[in-house]
Simulated assay, not measured.
Amino acid sequence: MNTGRIVRLAERDRVEVQFFLDGEMRYALAGDTVLTAMLAPGHALRKSEFGPEPRAGFCLMGACQDCWVWQEAGPRLRACSTPVTGGMRLRTTAPESWP
Score class of each variant (00 low, 15 high):
residue 26 R to A: 11
residue 26 R to N: 12
residue 28 A to L: 07
residue 28 A to E: 09
residue 29 L to I: 02
residue 31 G to I: 00
residue 32 D to M: 10
residue 32 D to A: 09
residue 32 D to T: 02
residue 32 D to R: 06
residue 34 V to E: 08
residue 34 V to A: 11
residue 36 T to D: 15
residue 36 T to V: 09
residue 37 A to M: 05
residue 37 A to H: 02
residue 38 M to T: 04
residue 39 L to C: 09
residue 40 A to P: 06
residue 40 A to M: 13
residue 40 A to V: 12
residue 41 P to W: 05
residue 41 P to N: 08
residue 42 G to Y: 02
residue 42 G to T: 01
residue 43 H to M: 11
residue 43 H to I: 00
residue 44 A to L: 01
residue 44 A to K: 07
residue 45 L to V: 04
residue 45 L to I: 03
residue 46 R to W: 06
residue 46 R to S: 07
residue 46 R to L: 02
residue 46 R to N: 07
residue 47 K to C: 09
residue 47 K to M: 08
residue 47 K to P: 10
residue 48 S to R: 07
residue 48 S to N: 12
residue 49 E to P: 15
residue 50 F to N: 15
residue 54 P to I: 00
residue 54 P to D: 06
residue 54 P to H: 05
residue 55 R to V: 00
residue 56 A to D: 13
residue 56 A to T: 12
residue 56 A to C: 13
residue 57 G to R: 04
residue 57 G to H: 05
residue 57 G to M: 01
residue 58 F to V: 01
residue 59 C to V: 00
residue 60 L to C: 09
residue 60 L to M: 13
residue 60 L to G: 08
residue 61 M to K: 07
residue 61 M to Q: 06
residue 62 G to K: 01
residue 62 G to Y: 00
residue 64 C to G: 09
residue 65 Q to C: 11
residue 66 D to I: 00
residue 67 C to V: 02
residue 67 C to Y: 06
residue 67 C to R: 08
residue 69 V to L: 15
residue 70 W to T: 09
residue 72 E to G: 06
residue 72 E to C: 10
residue 72 E to A: 10
residue 72 E to H: 10
residue 73 A to P: 08
residue 75 P to T: 05
residue 76 R to D: 13
residue 76 R to K: 15
residue 78 R to E: 09
residue 78 R to D: 04
residue 79 A to S: 15
residue 79 A to H: 10
residue 80 C to G: 04
residue 80 C to E: 01
residue 80 C to D: 03
residue 81 S to T: 08
residue 82 T to H: 10
residue 82 T to K: 10
residue 83 P to C: 04
residue 84 V to W: 04
residue 84 V to M: 11
residue 84 V to A: 11
residue 84 V to D: 08
residue 84 V to R: 07
residue 85 T to M: 13
residue 86 G to Q: 11
residue 86 G to D: 14
residue 87 G to N: 04
residue 87 G to S: 04
residue 89 R to S: 09
residue 90 L to T: 04
residue 90 L to Q: 10
